[in-house]
Design a protein around this nucleic acid. Structure first.
Lengths: 208, 208
DNA sequence: GTACGCTTGAAACGATCGTTTGAATAGGAT
DNA sequence: ATCCTATTCAAACGATCGTTTCAAGCGTAC
């Protein structure tokens, strides 16, 4: 076998997406990869390290792309809400499309891991979103001065919920798929609802 | 033990929410419930039946409530978009609050199972949402004639994504919790963004 | 008391889990 | 050819999984 390590990662991506982390055994992975059981612990050390390696390669670049786009925007001047949201959403759509081309089931797995909110995932997504939330929160605040920081954070989390749902690729009966191959069109469609959703006047809650 | 069956359900709810279905063993469940291992298979037949029993008691009433509210609305006349969305969201918020009072971790577990999109879950949520999507889709279509049925279904799924995210109770660092105890206030907050999000013109080009 | 359904108990079932071991193999550098 | 490092392999490790078995306990009707 010339490239056992890569074959294992590919097989694990598919099986994790299909049956979850706990629902996938190393024997399934290595059988699909055409490798030996011991190869996982040899190349990765443990099953958990294999998971982290898969997740990191997906999650980290998304937020890196977000920050690059936002930096560019703020360097050019004061961005409006549509530009900020585009910088937030475009990395998701591009990554979603790329992941699908590489492995059709991978985005769903990432969405599952995100929504599991377990102790394994919390440091991975927590530290990532801390910077993202602060940077985009203040960018939105300057574009929409009528909203409080708390309300902006709340609405941003709603958008995160939509994005995770996009990644989950849940296609309910009678509904078409949420995103397609045309990233520009998907972005337009998302901005068409997220911009009004973010711009809407606040009915803020006092008792929280 | 006077009520072993109930104790098992309660323990399973907590542990499933914490560690997932595959991540929870029957021995953990029965130990927490103060029951014997064999009690699970005696009362439920299998671990999978125990899961289905827990999910059914949560998911089915939500959509039943939705349909009752929508029936009431349509019986009174032609509902506007805000009323329809209220009928869609209110059962979620009420159920979310109730579930939290009963078991703080239960909503997160439901959200996890929803987003897993596995073969076990598909019949449970699929058949449920088929009626819901059709009924609410047509109700929204009469309230918003400028939107195509396909666009309505797509936006409705975005709202489902937000709701699942609410249930997941993911609290990112630096952000407050998404919903509280004041259901009326939470509903107002959700309607403040979902009504503009649903009403927005289709594929709008620019907001300046 | 005796007999009978319902429920619980301890123990073991076969299967599978993630991990480890140590020998066998390959392929280049010297 | 010889050595060395990297990788693969079959096999087994102890642990834990969901499930089953069957005896013991329980309250109620006879």
């Amino acid at each position: 076998m010339v490239n056992t390590r890569e074959q294992i990662v590919d097989a694990a991506e598919v099986l994790f997406a299909e049956n979850g982390y706990n629902g996938t055994s190393l024997r399934q992975i290595t059988e699909r990869a055409g490798a030996n059981i011991a190869a996982v612990n040899y190349h990765f050390g443990s099953k958990e390290n294999l998971l982290i390696e898969i997740l990191d390669r997906v999650v980290v670049p998304i937020n890196a792309r977000r920050l690059v786009l936002l930096d560019d925007l703020e360097h050019q001047g004061k961005p409006d809400i549509r530009q900020v949201l585009e910088a937030f959403l475009l990395p998701d759509l591009r990554t979603l499309k790329e992941l699908r081309q590489r492995n059709q089931a991978l985005p769903r797995f990432v969405a599952r891991m995100y929504s599991e909110n377990t102790e394994l995932m919390r440091p991975i997504m927590g530290q990532q979103f801390e910077t993202i939330g602060r940077r985009f929160g203040s960018a939105i605040a300057t574009a929409l001065p009528h909203l409080s920081a708390e309300e902006i954070g709340w609405r941003l989390q709603c958008i995160v919920g939509i994005v995770i749902y996009l990644f989950a690729s849940i296609t309910l009966p009678g509904a078409s798929s949420m995103v397609g191959d045309n990233t520009e069109a998907d972005l337009e469609r998302l901005l068409a609802i997220t911009v009004p959703m973010m711009t809407a006047p606040s009915r803020e809650v006092a008792t929280r």
